[in-house]
Design a protein around this nucleic acid. Structure first.
Length: 282
DNA sequence: AAGATTGTTGCTTA
DNA sequence: TTAAGCAACAATCT
């Protein structure tokens, strides 16, 4: 999400919304889409996996991609380069065809042929236009992110204290920590050497510190490599992420553990596929 | 054909 | 009140 946010913000900040096209009513909330037309995108922010478009009118456009959502920019070649953050060719669709496609649910049109496509196969994602109060209410329900100072030892210790749920579920709980999903949760726990089935409340100080540093390390590296394309993820230019090559356990059931040469196991935890090494995650 | 899939919400139960 | 555990949402692939 951070990769997408950067791509979109670099290109759309300061641009006026000329036209809004709602192709699938289900994914749009917040009343009349026409309200957006004529408004201007001041900047695009993010809390966890939720994108927050800050508009000149004072309204906010919230976008959540859930499992299969994509936000892909498109612009004519003549706009690309010449001081723009993208090189020519970056906007060529890499999703396998032309946009819009049958999964395009929503489109924003900007001047000079710049377009933003929201595609979503499973239609779990949403686009919602909200008043500032509602934006604040929604964002305040999300916990600190791994790369902020609020993601501290004290905070984690407090959050884990007396928790009966397994640590994997707690890492996925966006009210406690925001931004960690199923793939990164498995990678963080592998990096920290902690068994995903462990009761969160049972972790000692040293183990909490490991979660803390592994969380920062994995997320930092994943952003550096522009995200993880396991299946449908695309960045704001329609390109794939490059972090898959660095996944140590996710999607590697039966493979050899890179640390101890044991066999990577897959179980179900929190109703999610969970990958770990029984040899070195205790 | 059953079971899997990157996420969250809302229900039930404790 | 709060927490834990699941089904549900929906489309596609194996």
């Amino acid at each position: 999400m951070e990769t997408i946010r950067r791509d979109l913000n670099d290109f759309l900040a300061g641009l006026k919304i000329k036209k809004v096209e709602i192709r699938d009513k289900k994914i749009f909330g917040g009343g009349e889409g026409k309200k957006l037309e004529g408004d201007l995108v001041k900047k695009i922010g993010r809390q966890g996996k939720l994108l927050v478009f800050e508009l000149k009118s004072g309204l906010f456009l919230l976008i959540h991609l859930k499992m299969t959502g994509q936000l892909v920019l498109s612009a004519p070649d003549k706009l690309i380069g010449g001081g723009h953050p993208f090189k020519k060719g970056d906007f060529q669709d890499q999703t396998g065809g032309k946009l819009p496609n049958k999964h395009t649910r929503f489109v924003l049109y900007f001047p000079e042929g710049v377009k933003l496509f929201f595609n979503d196969i499973r239609r779990f994602g949403y686009v919602k236009l909200v008043e500032p109060e509602e934006k604040t209410r929604i964002v305040s329900q999300l916990g600190p992110e791994p790369l902020t100072p609020e993601f501290s030892f004290q905070k984690l210790k407090e959050a884990f204290k007396n928790r009966k749920a397994n640590i994997k579920s707690v890492l996925l709980n966006q009210k406690i920590i925001s931004g960690i999903g199923n793939i990164y949760a498995d990678e963080v726990l592998f990096s920290a050497g902690i068994d995903p089935r462990r009761e969160a409340g049972s972790l000692d100080d040293e183990e909490i510190k490991k979660i803390l540093s592994s969380g920062k390390k994995i997320i930092k590296k994943a952003i550096k490599y522009r995200g993880t394309t396991f299946s449908d993820y695309r960045d704001g230019r329609g390109g794939k992420g490059n972090f898959e090559a660095f996944l140590k356990v996710y999607g590697r059931e039966g493979e050899k553990c890179p640390k101890c040469s044991g066999k990577i196991k897959k179980i179900t935890l929190a109703s999610r596929g969970t990958h770990y090494c029984p040899g070195c995650q205790k």
